[in-house]
Amino acid sequence: METEVILVRSFTANGRGGNPAGVVVNAPQLSQAQKLKIAQIVGYSETAFVTVDNEVDWQVSFFTTTGEVDFCGHATLAAFSVLYQKGLITTGKYIQRTRAGLLPVVVTSDGQVVMEQQLPQFLGSFHAREVSALIGIDAGVIESTQLPVEAISTGLPDMIIPVPFGYLDRIQPNQSLIADFCQKYELVGLHVYELYPPESELTASCRNFAPLYGIPEESATGSSSGALACYLSKYLPDESTSRERRDYVFEQGRAMQCTSKITASVTFQNSEIVKVEVGGQAHETGLRHITV
């Protein structure tokens, strides 16, 4: 069986950078084993498989090179960008069925895809000493941010780790230790960030490591960006902005020479988070035909 895989880069900045994903449209006949094999041949961090759903709009499954995951932000963006560019959808709101639940996706007239994520689960804090060796940054440096190290999920559980401005590119990840740590605490990966100065148009620059799932480093992660937006809205509330909605712009992939741009917003009602959204642009880069 030959399958067409559309190659896409998600969260591009001015058409450049971004995180690669594979997209397979309307392949309901593929088995789980075949999907995994295709994802392994493509070799990207995730490949999305899209089929029409009988109850909602689309069913989307996500495969890394090691297995299926519940949700993937950048592969969702890739999938709906492909559907839009192929004329299978127009601008508007759609519902995707994922293993993380039913999640809305909005496509705007300029082709931007905005994904609604699960409401945050704050899964617990860790001491800086517990993560220092994982990223090669002294615990005292992490503590100097006066911000917590905390596991948060808006679809996938990630550890959010702050470092001072100027330290992000100094990280020396220990992939083996990170994989063992994530397996022990049932995390997908580590999302490390440094805040930009307030006058910058960017909120933070980030790096993401998920070696447990075959991803040494990722240049754009949508689910982690949603988690980081919730983290910042909790620990760094900006009283100069609306109390109903806070918007963030994240940069990721700089250390990989593949800079990506990710937007995120958190909506509140009576001081409670009621909506988490992550958005960006995607660009098709090619096709592959794979026989499994």
Rank of each mutant, 00 (worst) to 15 (best):
S200R: 11
I171L: 05
R170F: 13
P157Q: 04
P164A: 08
E186C: 15
L156P: 05
Y167S: 03
P197I: 09
S144E: 03
P164D: 08
L177D: 06
R207S: 08
Q183I: 14
K184Y: 14
I178C: 04
S200V: 11
I178F: 08
L202A: 12
P173S: 04
H191M: 14
L156K: 00
R170H: 12
I160D: 05
S144C: 10
L168M: 01
Q183W: 13
L168S: 04
L195S: 06
T145L: 09
Y193E: 04
K184N: 15
L202P: 02
T154I: 10
P197M: 10
G155R: 02
N174R: 03
Y196M: 15
C206R: 05
D180I: 08
P157S: 07
P173R: 06
L147A: 04
L190A: 05
N208D: 04
E150W: 02
D158M: 12
P198V: 12
P162K: 03
S144K: 07
N174K: 03
L177N: 05
E199H: 15
T203R: 01
A151W: 03
K184R: 15
K184Q: 15
I152G: 00
Y193V: 01
V163F: 01
M159T: 07
E201I: 15
L168N: 02
A210I: 00
L147Y: 06
N174D: 12
G155M: 07
S205L: 06
M159I: 09
P162Q: 03
Q183F: 12
S176C: 12
V192A: 08
S153A: 04
T203S: 09
R207T: 09
L177W: 06
V192I: 15
P157K: 05
P148M: 01
D158E: 11
E199N: 13
T145D: 05
A204D: 10
Q146A: 14
P148Q: 01
P164Q: 08
L147R: 04
E186M: 14
R207L: 11
L195V: 10
S200Y: 12
P198D: 11
Y193K: 04
F209M: 08
E150P: 09
P157F: 00
S205I: 12
P173H: 05
Q146Y: 12
R170A: 13
G189A: 07
L147E: 01
I160M: 06
Q183M: 15
N174G: 03
E199F: 14
T203Y: 00
L195F: 09
V163T: 07
Y193L: 02
Y196R: 14
A151I: 00
I178T: 02
R170E: 14
Y167G: 05
Y185T: 08
E150Y: 08
P148K: 00
I171S: 02
L147M: 06
Y193M: 07
K184W: 12
L187D: 06
I171P: 00
P162Y: 00
I171Y: 04
A204K: 00
I171V: 08
S153G: 06
Q146I: 09
Q146C: 13
H191D: 11
A151C: 05
L187E: 00
L195T: 08
S205F: 01
